[in-house]
Design a binder for these strands. Structure first.
Lengths: 206, 206, 206, 206
DNA sequence: GATGAATGAGAATTCATTCAT
DNA sequence: CATGAATGAATTCTCATTCAT
């Protein structure tokens, strides 16, 4: 009975991280509504009141998960992009980091992308903020020169959408991040380049 | 009380459609777990037992929504693509139809795309089938000639992902389907063309 | 659609019997609370309102079942006992008739004995009346001469109880009514005889 | 409101017994299907979630009742029989204990005997096990010497059936257990004795 | 005579959340 | 610091019962 596996009396910061780990896992598996605080507490190895004491309500807990995971993803991408020279290299590095992250942290991505998106008003803000941080980062990659705001915004949305779908594909086929990155670059790089140069596709019919 | 003022004693087929309309709306707004059968019934202007009698369990009801909405979207795309001559034209028509549909039937798209994806085993099949019908249609557009199966699959996943993200963007900015289509073609058409021709992007560094 | 199997427009008396047949079956299978009017109606091949129109509420329907089946059992026993000469013969004939009935009409016995007994106040009367008709008949068999009322009552209760338990035993082993009857007579006949003669068992210890 | 005025925050073991007490009472009064978890909780003086937390589903709860009550009855009979010397004494002690138990714990007997019997597959096992423990005990009393298995089985079924019916009779007339026991011995002892000795009743007619 | 359409009421079960210790 | 005990409020689903045709 007396603490073999779970040392009691851990410092607060550690316990909080354990709880968040558990929460991310449960939210990823069941979605926000499907998750129960009971399960989170059990998986974290603490009693429910502890969860409430440390992280607040279910809503708060979900928010905390989103923020922590989004920050982790951002950091991974940012540091990957950091010391690449050309736009092309930045994109490649960024995509590779992204695909790598998704492959290595399925739960994290699951919560962020699948579970959190479009979850009624109380969460929309939190999630949108997180998602926009990422899209903005991509916009930053592409929009080094003067594409108009609208253009770059749409472009990065499309890129992130495509990347997301490919991440899923990659997680099913198990292909390495570099290959998936190549597929994506294959599809979009020339388009991006031309867009940066100001050229654009015209309907063939006209 | 909130439902439309309905004449009583409608024939079954009519009531079923009303219920499905309501269900799509509610599932779109709240997600599967967040939706309550009470709300569906109220919005449909009937009592709960009618919903259970006609459409079965919540799970069944959700499945019925998915199937109906997926069929509608597919029909719209299929008929748009039908009489276009070149691959390029087909893509343009297909995207326009898609963006048009998403713009005009927000709830439908919401259920199909945001709410239904990644919803545990009981639904995975139904949803996956619907989603794959669409992706297969896109694959069919692109893969008229001999891109290898894997290539085409990844490509169409990426295209659908990009289109989805742009649809969201468009729904926020309110731009017409033709403009969004142009943005997307701008980004990907050359890449597609080259891929059809067998050329591909190479990492610049090597 | 138009009546191949179930001729429509049957005379009321026939329909009522069909419904009662169905009801006995369903009540036997599921018990009073577990049975649903839907199932009864379906099994009877009519719509629910017909059941209500002809037999009244669920409670009424159950009562009607009890009465009909109890009457059938009583008639079987009564006519078997009718032309036996001695008390012993009457008992044997009565038990054989009883065991035979239980073996041949499982549902009927099930409803009467298992499902109906001890079913809260609304039914207690109906069921008790039916059960007492049978016990009274047994009392009549045994009490031809002057056992005091109390004695005979207790005796016949015990006999019916034993017979009931043996009926169940017989229905499991499938042994013929005559054998089961012999078992029972084996156990109780001498005791009955002595009781009729006024002799009685005395505790051995005194 | 109806429950006993309970001090709050009782230890689990205590609360569980209170809940079982209430459940036995309610199941006895209404039968399995007729009983509602609401009523059980109210009578136990706790909220429904506590019942589910401690005892599980309605089915589980019913099973727990059956097990507890069957064990109590068995213990009473076993300890009564324990130090009687002859078969006759054992039977007398056993019956007295049984009639005493039924008289003193009406609800318990009601659940065990009337409510639980013949209750569809999910319960059949539990109930049958409990019931057979009792019948086996009786078989053990009677079958000290070599009555064949079938014989002894039928005999003990019949005895338990008779005892049950007499218990009911006794509970109506209020007569003491010793008197009811005498009635039963009066009826069956000679039959049992002869059966032990291998003699048996023969149809008078042959 | 017969039924499809419809519902009010209540069932089991679960969950987020909070005290008292 | 930490938890076992406890619950109000929903949620899904079913059922007996009745109209309108």
């Amino acid at each position: 009975m007396t603490g073999v596996a779970n040392p009691k009396r851990l410092p607060r910061a550690v316990r909080e991280q354990q709880m968040l780990d558990a929460a991310v896992r449960v939210f990823a598996d069941r979605g926000y509504h499907g998750a129960s605080m009971d399960e989170v507490a059990e998986l974290a190895g603490v009693s429910k009141p502890m969860v409430y004491l440390y992280l607040g309500s279910k809503e708060d807990l979900f928010g905390a998960c989103i923020r922590r995971e989004a920050a982790r993803l951002m950091e991974r991408i940012t540091s990957a992009v950091h010391d690449a020279a050309t736009i092309e290299c930045r994109l490649v590095s960024g995509f590779e980091a992204f695909f790598g992250y998704v492959a290595e942290h399925k739960d994290s991505w699951n919560v962020l992308y699948h579970r959190a998106r479009a979850l009624g008003p109380p969460f929309a803000d939190e999630v949108d903020r997180a998602r926009h941080d990422i899209i903005d980062a991509v916009t930053g990659l592409v929009d080094q020169r003067g594409a108009s705001a609208g253009e770059a915004g749409a472009l990065s949305h499309a890129l992130v959408g495509a990347a997301d779908a490919l991440a899923e594909w990659a997680s099913r086929t198990g292909e390495p991040a570099t290959v998936t990155t190549a597929r994506l670059m294959n599809l979009v790089w020339i388009g991006i380049e031309r867009q940066i140069d100001g050229a654009s596709w015209r309907p063939a019919s006209s």
